[in-house]
Amino acid sequence: MSDPTLPPIPPGAGARPGLSVPDLLVALGVVLLGALLLIGTLQIPFGINAVVGPRVFPLIVSVGTLLLGTLLTVNVLRGGRAEPAAEEDTDPDARPDLRQPALILGGFLLGAALLQPLGFVIGTAVMYFTVGFAFGERRAPLLAGVALIVALVTYVVFTRGLGLTLPAGLLNGVL
């Protein structure tokens, strides 16, 4: 389903030699998640009189996760590796560039931090700008202008139109 030239790897059968370290880390991560869940499950108090207590389903889920994680680890150790998903807008042969998603994430968290002190419009405009920039738009004034307009229109439609409360921040009293 990902790359037409490489058939998907069935579980337990390594198609290519060599161990993929990132895949191994992910598989071990799943095992770790299962283990943490199991520990957490044993700390849930019982509560009221009930036939099936609050621990039963968490127990099933954590043991299941542990089991599946182990299977995945075995798969990876035998040479299995994941093929990154192919999206319409992605280039399967390009070297992944982690700086762009990091930039988006940074912009998003910065925007979220500014949302309450400076207001919704500034916060979301920051987010808009960083995503646009990360996607290769370099005309900064244009991008900033569009960002502010989109944020402002969204703000007005939601607060005026639907009566939602979004933080006004700097615009307090202006709009």
Binding site: Y128, V131, L166
Partner: peptide
């Protein structure tokens, strides 16, 4: 809409929805 603006718009819409 050009991709930079489209993806940025999706993110802003998502933010409003989740925040509200």
């Amino acid at each position: 809409i050009p991709r930079p603006f489209l993806y940025a718009g999706i993110l802003v819409f998502s933010t409003v929805g989740v925040y509200s």
